[in-house]
C-alpha cells in the first residue's frame, strides 16, 4: 500500500523579489511515498538545496506549502517547527555534520537525547547502528579523528537513529572519494531496505544517481524529469 509522506504543493521560492527576482523554485509539485530512495539532480543553481530546505522546514516558501503526513509544516513557526523537525525529519549535510565535541557514539545518540528517549533504547539503537555502518571500533572517537566518509556514515546513523519519517541529504557524497561514496550509498540503501526509511537526497554524481530508484531532475527551479533509471543502468551499477 502506498503512503504519501511528503506532499509539496505549488512550491515557489523567489529571491530578491524587489530588484531582479530569481526563481529558485518555480511552482514545483512533488509527492514522495514511504520507503522511496529518491535522488534530486540538476545543474548548480537549479534549486536542489532550496527544494530540500522547503521540504525539511528549514526555509519558508514564497508560495505553496508542504505537508508531511498531513501536517502543513509551512504554517508552523519557531519552536513548534523545530520540534516537528526533531520528531519527524532526519538531516544529513554535505560536510561538518557532527557536533565536534561529542564522540561518534554521542553524536548518534544526540537526537534521541533531545527527544528524551529512555537510556536502554538509546544504547540498543546506537549499538545496532554502529554495527550497521561498520564502525563499532570507533565509538569513542571525536569527529576530527574520523575520515570524511566515516563522519558521513555517523551522520546517516544519527539521522536514522530515532526512525524519522524520512531523511533529507543535501549532496551527502560531494566531499567523498568514490570508494567512500559507494560505501555510504551501500549503508544508505541497506538501511532503506531493512528499516523501510525514506531517503531523499540531492547529488551531482552520476554513479550515485544510478543507484537511486527514482530520479527527479531540476532545471531553473522546475522539475523537468521524474523517472526511474533504465534497467541497463541498474544492471551496470548495482552490485
Amino acid at each position: 500500500m502506498k503512503e504519501t509522506v511528503i506532499d509539496a504543493h505549488n512550491l515557489s521560492k523567489i529571491y530578491d523579489e524587489k530588484t531582479i527576482p530569481v526563481y529558485a523554485l518555480n511552482n514545483v509539485h512533488l509527492h514522495i511515498q514511504r520507503g522511496e530512495f529518491t535522488a534530486i539532480k540538476g545543474p548548480s543553481g537549479s534549486g536542489k538545496t532550496t527544494l530540500l530546505n522547503m521540504i525539511g522546514g528549514l526555509d519558508n516558501p514564497s508560495g505553496g506549502f508542504v505537508e508531511i503526513n498531513d501536517t502543513n509544516i509551512t504554517a508552523l513557526k519557531g519552536n513548534r517547527l523545530i520540534d516537528f523537525r526533531l520528531n519527524n525529519i532526519g538531516f544529513v549535510f554535505q560536510s561538518y555534520n557532527l557536533i565536534p565535541v561529542l564522540t561518534a557514539k554521542e553524536n548518534i545518540e544526540f537526537i534521541m537525547l533531545l527527544q528524551n528517549r529512555p537510556k536502554e533504547e538509546r544504547e540498543k539503537r546506537v549499538a545496532e547502528l554502529l554495527k550497521q555502518i561498520g564502525m563499532e571500533d570507533k565509538v569513542d572517537k571525536r569527529p576530527v579523528e574520523l575520515s570524511g566518509g566515516q563522519q558521513q556514515r555517523v551522520a546517516v546513523a544519527r539521522a536514522l537513529a530515532p526512525k524519522p519519517q524520512f531523511i533529507l541529504a543535501d549532496e551527502p557524497t560531494a566531499n567523498l572519494d568514490s570508494i567512500a561514496a559507494e560505501n555510504l550509498l551501500d549503508v544508505m540503501l541497506k538501511l532503506n531496505k531493512e528499516e523501510n526509511i525514506t531517503f531523499v537526497f540531492s547529488t551531482h554524481d552520476q554513479r550515485v544517481i544510478n543507484r537511486a530508484r527514482r530520479v527527479i531532475t531540476l532545471e531553473d527551479g522546475k522539475i523537468v524529469a521524474d523517472t526511474a533509471p533504465t534497467k541497463i543502468e541498474h544492471l551496470l551499477y548495482e552490485k
Binding site: 525539511g56 528549514l58 519557531g78 519552536n79 520540534d83 520528531n87 555534520n97 537526537i111 533531545l114
Partner: peptide, 13 residues
C-alpha cells in the same frame, strides 16, 4: 554553521 545545524536537527531555541 554548527548552531544552524543544531537548529536544523531539532534543538529548540
Amino acid at each position: 554553521w554548527e548552531i544552524g545545524m543544531l537548529l536544523a536537527l531539532g534543538m529548540n531555541k
